[in-house]
Design a protein around this nucleic acid. Structure first.
Length: 109
DNA sequence: CACCTGACAAATT
DNA sequence: TAATTTGCCAGGT
């Protein structure tokens, strides 16, 4: 497998653990990985994971904004998927992060 | 081989 | 309070 790196692999794993209807932020993932400031690397991993079947649309920035729209494939792709999963949007491109925030390791429960 | 870029965030000035 | 800088990791040029 995948060479990439432990960091990437961990990011993919965490993201794949996100329950449907929930979202998480780069900062929380990075923090879970051990480096809270590695949010950049998290986004980097998602970008590399594009096409790997990873639900990267469930990962947003700390404002709940869909940061990776441009890299995802379309400006309305992520939003449409998130809405289909039960995510409430405050406005176009911005979801209610405080209502659907999920924390890695927090368990689905 | 060295520098720059890139889906961010938090701290400091 | 806002603006700027640093930290993080890997990939591309």
């Amino acid at each position: 497998m995948p060479a990439r790196s432990d960091f990437f692999d961990r990011v993919w794993k965490v993201v794949s653990e996100i329950p449907l209807g929930k979202v998480t932020t780069y900062g929380h993932i990075a923090e879970f990985l051990g480096s809270k400031s590695a949010a950049r690397t998290v986004g980097w991993a998602l970008r590399a994971a594009k096409g790997s079947g990873l639900p990267c649309h469930r990962v947003v920035n700390r404002y709940g904004g869909l940061s990776g729209q441009s890299s995802f494939g379309g400006p309305y792709v992520m939003e449409d998927i998130l809405r289909s999963e039960g995510i409430e949007f405050i406005e176009e491109g911005i979801l209610d992060i405080k209502k659907h925030l999920w924390i890695p390791g927090g368990e689905t429960k």
